[in-house]
Design a protein around this nucleic acid. Structure first.
Lengths: 199, 199
DNA sequence: TCTTGATTCGACCGATGGGTCGAATCGCTG
DNA sequence: CAGCGATTCGACCCATCGGTCGAATCAAGA
């Protein structure tokens, strides 16, 4: 019963570490950021930090794990969508953009620190990404087969292009700007799919 | 006259260093890559490397300088284009994609190592990027004013989205694939601008 | 108040890496 | 072949950093 309270407090503190790590890794880069930076930003010494975390690498892996989990969930949700392919595509893109806006720092790490991951996690990352893209690819193929639209290119190229535009958002979205993540999401989805509306 | 020959050979060797640096920095990341890695990849010791280069930071700065110069030139060329805004936009995007395909490693560094730059170079980077975007923005505004097309969003958002799709290419283009940089460029431009063709 | 485990920390270790230095070669020119 | 600058290198210096350890402090329950 006391164990419970203690465990919860530790959990909360550990999450706090992760938040600070996201900010620090994102700002200076994983390699350039030191464990001391994280500790200092939490108002403690480096040694204390290791009470909540076993290694720098573990922190990075956990951050990737979080994003990966999100991706898997999103992929499942897409696959089970009942709408027309075009509508599903639009909602998916809008969602992804909104998610990116809300987690810019985390996604900067996710997209830019791949090389820092140990081999095991790297291949997991590749496989999850592949699953996600495959789901998108299937959706595009379905829409094209159903005559909803016709592409001027390969589905693969189309998906890569559209996903690139959505992902890039982490580089330029400003939370203090006039647009909410959702608004920006639907606008970008509009731009990207406008060409498909009239075959 | 001998000075000349020697100077040329040094120049060539220095460029060789830059090429190797691009490969190494791109693969392991600027911070994780060591000067020793670069030297080893050139078949020499670390100390010898410093005969051609004064510091690791200088190498990075020179790489950025190269891309920046390219950007400035491109911006000028865009501004002086005589075509309709839409055609100019299409060619610009295609060019940019092709350039990205041909310099994937360099652009990975350019896009992902910003934080490693000293403050002086960082503000230069920001200002050049701003100039480039401004040129694009003007072009879009001109096209819209001329009634060539109408945007479903702000010109700024449109430019950011479209540029994101083009830049992201460094993450997925495969030189051994069936498409040449130019072919891919025009296909992507087609996807991105398809929505503007019929207002 | 005593006890026990959680939390914090200063000091330290070992490894890595940027950069330097003096000396040894190398290669061309006179 | 003598001489000189270009080139290379091994050894070294020093700062940083990930991670550890033992001790001190704190908090709460009995």
């Amino acid at each position: 019963m006391v164990d419970q309270r203690v465990a919860l407090r530790q959990e909360a503190r550990r999450r706090e570490v992760m938040e600070v790590a996201i900010a620090v890794f994102s700002e200076r880069g994983y390699r350039a950021a030191s464990m001391n930076d994280i500790a200092a930003n939490m108002g403690m010494g480096k040694a204390s930090l290791y009470h909540y975390v076993t290694s720098k690498e573990e922190v990075l892996i956990e951050l990737y794990e979080d994003v990966l989990r999100e991706n898997v969930i999103a992929a499942r949700r897409i696959a089970s969508s009942q709408r027309t392919a075009l509508d599903a595509l639009a909602e998916l893109l809008a969602d992804r953009v909104a998610y990116t806006c809300r987690n810019r720092d985390l996604l900067r790490i996710f997209f830019e620190e791949e090389a820092e991951l140990p081999a095991r996690q790297q291949s997991r990352l590749i496989s999850v990404r592949h699953e996600y893209e495959q789901t998108l690819l299937d959706m595009v193929a379905r829409g094209e087969a159903a005559g909803e639209f016709s592409l001027p290119t390969t589905p693969q190229i189309f998906v890569n292009t559209v996903l690139g535009a959505a992902n890039w958002v982490y580089k330029w979205y400003q939370p203090q700007g006039p647009l909410s993540p959702e608004e920006l999401g639907s606008q970008i989805a509009g731009i990207l799919l406008a060409g498909l509306r009239s075959p």
